[in-house]
Design a protein around this nucleic acid. Structure first.
Lengths: 175, 175
DNA sequence: TATTGTTATACTCTATAACTATA
DNA sequence: TATAGTTATAGAGTATAACAATA
């Protein structure tokens, strides 16, 4: 329809717009995952009183071998260190993890999941799996699972752009 | 490894755990989308001072025919009505949308994107498309796009469970 | 100097419940 | 009675910058 647009904008030189298939796939991907995430969040909150972020922070080291450093723990879960410190503070206060100084590196903090933490993960897991299975896995067929895994592995591997472009507009934010 | 687990838990009767492929795909899907969403959010904030939610609220009616009601606008973007009212309040205050009573239904509010709103969407769009293309579309090949679209369409269509199970634990929350 | 982690602070956003008004 | 939308409010989460300590 609107196939004009002198293709230069604030975003850079000449950007080809998305065709309907690209647009549709983006859209449905974001919406489906958003829906899934919302349901997962509900289940975790209802069953264990934790958020998805907290679940990830508990589940990863709970099923691993040893304790992780804060930095290792943050990987892929949280985008700011202070955010992790905040969450770790909550989890520690709830008795689900402990934080101790690392013997190897005196700067580092080692996070260990307590027995209570492990128990909580186990208590929450069946319902979590049920939601994931029902909402994500059940509607798949054939090699959908592997295809999806492959594609998303490539997507995840995409390097983030280094420089952040300058702010152009004041935020809409706040009231 | 741990193949025990008397498969009953708080989540319901007998839940088969995820096999490694299922677990891996879930994981990489959530992480890849989270990464994508974070980059998109950064770009929108930097270029237009808006969040992804706000972008969706602007972009949908901006490219549609007529104004939408609040309820129509909320669909798939927001999970509570008050959340939408909040966002609409911000967008209206920023002059990006207007809200007027519907002539058809005196309960409804019609949301119209203003010229400024449309201009903002256009200003932000090239950069948005660039991010989506680079992070999501470029790493795809062959019929990946269609396969992904198909799968996610099925996933999205999955009906949410009606009843919310009772809370079992106090939230970790707050400090 | 770079890295690890914490703190203080300021927002940004979401959700629940109560409410008004119309269908 | 059910639906559309708003308000008040509380709570959860995130991010920035400044900081301390170690590599």
């Amino acid at each position: 329809m609107t196939d004009s647009q002198p293709p230069t904008g604030a975003g850079g030189p000449s950007v080809r717009p998305l065709d309907p298939a690209e647009l549709g796939t983006c859209f449905v991907l974001m919406e489906a995952v958003s829906l899934l995430q919302h349901q997962v969040e509900q289940q975790l909150r209802a069953t264990g009183g934790i958020s998805y972020v907290q679940f990830q922070l508990l589940a990863r080291p709970a099923h691993g071998d040893g304790p992780l450093t804060m930095t290792e723990l943050a990987d892929g879960v949280v985008y700011s260190r202070s955010g992790l410190t905040y969450q770790a503070g909550l989890l520690e206060k709830a008795g689900l993890i402990t934080r101790d100084p690392s013997p190897d590196d005196d700067r580092a903090t080692l996070v260990t999941v307590t027995d209570d933490g492990r128990a909580l993960v186990e208590a929450v897991l069946p319902g979590h799996v049920e939601v994931v299975r029902r909402l994500l896995l059940d509607p798949m067929a054939g090699d959908d699972l592997h295809r999806l895994g492959d594609v998303m592995t490539r997507v995840r591997a995409q390097p983030p752009r280094s420089a952040t472009p300058r702010r152009r507009r004041p935020p809409v934010a706040e009231q």
